[in-house]
């Protein structure tokens, strides 16, 4: 039996740096642009992000219309430039999943996998790649073989055959994590090619335990008491049943990602957050930007502009200013 003896102290490795002026959740164009401005205004800034290719821009292959960046440039490269710019002003970026927030406490709290962080203001920039629907069998078999967290549940599938469904860094990382336990892993990829960082694609496609099924959609998760299989359909092909005891789902969609807010903020019927002209939500000091809002055209430059407005408004909130201030030096 393997059991992590790591004490989960990675947050402590930051040496008491758990308290920030601003925490930005999501490091896409909105979050990274906000970080450039908050860090430059000398607000202690932390950006928590799931990964470079976790969001809409990160998986975009070519950008040629971002003002000032002639391109063509990949979305991941553009985000990386923004991050480096924010880091040059002192913003700190960590790769982590936010699992909860308390936006009403003072200071506000952000619970992530590696620890709990606090801030005077929070900028929500988690984008809109949440799933819009589930497949038949998914909800009823949750906790009975359906999982969204291989690192949590992988140990229950020792020597078994499982399926990982998705096409992003997270899906590939989790498939690789499962090779520690499972005998065989089907990676069910809806699109004709893998969209993740190169080293992950290389590792997954060369791993003897992983079989990649490209261009294959998940139709149903099958089982009575426990997961017994996943019904899949290759493009142009007939449906097939893969006999698996675990189904790890990392599919994405077009819905704003707000689950970590646990209903602390109201959303529109479309699932979007509502903000005022300074990007502030109904809770003072909590801002929302980018594709979390339904009001804007989904373009990186618009998300970036949202982030800048929120950053300046957060500065105003933290310092108790009456007006927005843009000239710090």
């Amino acid at each position: 039996m393997e059991l992590s003896l790591g004490l989960g102290l990675s947050k402590l490795g930051l040496e008491a740096e758990n308290d920030y002026d601003v925490i930005i959740i999501g490091g896409g164009p909105a979050g990274a642009s906000a970080a450039i401005y908050t860090a430059r205004s000398e607000l202690k800034t932390l950006v928590i992000d799931k990964g470079l290719t976790a969001g809409a821009l990160g998986i975009t292959a070519k950008i040629s219309n971002y003002p000032g960046v002639p391109g063509p440039i990949s979305g991941a490269e553009l985000v990386e430039i923004m991050r480096q710019q924010a880091e040059s002003f002192g913003a700190m970026f960590i790769t982590d999943k936010v699992v909860g927030v308390d936006i009403h406490s003072t200071p506000k709290m952000v619970m992530a996998g590696t620890g709990t962080f606090t801030a005077k203001a929070i900028i929500l920039a988690t984008g809109s790649m949440g799933r819009t629907s589930v497949v038949p069998g998914e909800e009823v078999l949750l906790g009975r073989g359906v999982s969204y967290c291989a690192t949590c549940d992988g140990a229950f599938f020792r020597d078994q055959t499982v399926a990982v469904i998705g096409n992003n860094d997270e899906a590939l990382e989790e498939a690789l994590f499962l090779t520690k336990y499972a005998a065989k892993i089907y990676l069910v990829v809806p699109t004709p090619e893998l969209k993740a960082r190169d080293f992950l694609v290389h590792e997954v496609t060369t791993h003897e335990k992983i079989e990649v099924l490209l261009g294959t959609r998940l139709k149903e998760i099958v089982g009575t008491e426990l997961v017994e299989g996943v019904r899949v359909q290759p493009r142009g092909g007939a449906e097939a049943l893969l006999p698996v005891s675990g189904a790890f789902v990392y599919l994405q969609g077009g819905k704003p990602i707000t689950d970590y807010l646990m209903e602390q903020l109201q959303t529109t019927p479309e699932g979007c957050l509502v903000v005022d002209s300074e990007m502030q939500t109904a809770v003072p000091g909590v801002f929302a930007v980018g594709d979390l809002l339904c009001t804007h055209i989904k373009q990186a430059v618009i998300a970036a502009a949202d982030g800048v407005i929120a950053a300046i408004a957060a500065d105003k909130f933290i310092h108790g200013r009456k007006k927005l201030q843009t000239d710090w030096r």
Partner: peptide, 10 residues
């Protein structure tokens, strides 16, 4: 819980 589960402490 499992020790590798970030959601479990909550």
């Amino acid at each position: 819980i499992t020790p590798t589960c970030p959601y479990c402490p909550r």
